[in-house]
Each structure stands twice: as structure tokens, then as C-alpha cells.
């Protein structure tokens, strides 16, 4: 499949990354290579295994009482901007 520069830019938008033109150019080549490699994979069909060998099942944690986590002051101290205990970000323009 041919990868266009537009797709590179779209990917950058998804990843929330600001890229230079040179980066976009070099990534363009790299993504093409990635797609070619991915398409080139040919492996025998795997027997439908339910879980990875040796992989543990998720053992749900036993019921427990709530435990204290971080205090509001700690959360606020970590945040670049806060207001009345909330984390503040620029106004989100559209609803949701």
C-alpha cells in the first residue's frame, strides 16, 4: 500500500506530536518500510490458543476496603495548573 505524506501528518495529529518537514519526510520512508515488513510476514496459522503459554490468568484482587491514595494537595502539587482542587486546562471549546 502506498503511504502518503497526508497519512504521516494524520498520524502525527493522532499522536499529538509537532513534527518538522524533514521529520515528516523521513517518517514517510520509515512508515512505508514498516507497512512493507508487516505485509511481508507470513506465518503458519496458529492453533487457536486461549492464552499465551505460561501467561497467568488475571487474578482479580480480593475485595478490599478503600485505601487512601494521594491527598488533594499532592495531586495539585504535581499539576502544572490547578484551581480550587481541580486540575486546570484551557477551555475545551466544544462540549465533550
Amino acid at each position: 500500500m502506498e503511504i502518503t505524506q497526508e497519512q504521516v501528518k494524520k498520524t502525527a495529529a493522532m499522536a499529538k506530536l509537532r513534527l518538522s518537514d524533514e521529520e515528516i519526510e523521513s517518517l514517510h520512508r520509515l512508515l512505508r518500510e514498516l507497512v512493507a515488513r508487516s505485509a511481508g510476514i507470513s506465518l503458519p496459522e496458529e492453533e487457536a490458543s486461549t492464552a499465551e503459554p505460561g501467561e497467568a490468568a488475571a487474578a482479580p484482587a480480593p475485595f478490599s476496603r478503600p485505601q487512601p491514595g494521594l491527598r488533594q494537595e499532592e495531586v495539585v502539587a504535581l499539576a502544572p495548573a490547578a484551581e480550587r482542587g481541580f486540575i486546570r486546562v484551557p477551555r475545551v471549546m466544544d462540549h465533550e
Partner: peptide, 13 residues
């Protein structure tokens, strides 16, 4: 939860 004010958006986790 996001709370939208005219100036900014406030987040409570």
C-alpha cells in the same frame, strides 16, 4: 469529570 467554565476547563479525577 470535566467542568467547563467560561475561562477554562477544570478536571476532577
Amino acid at each position: 469529570k470535566s467542568i467547563h467554565t467560561p475561562e477554562c476547563t477544570l478536571v476532577d479525577y
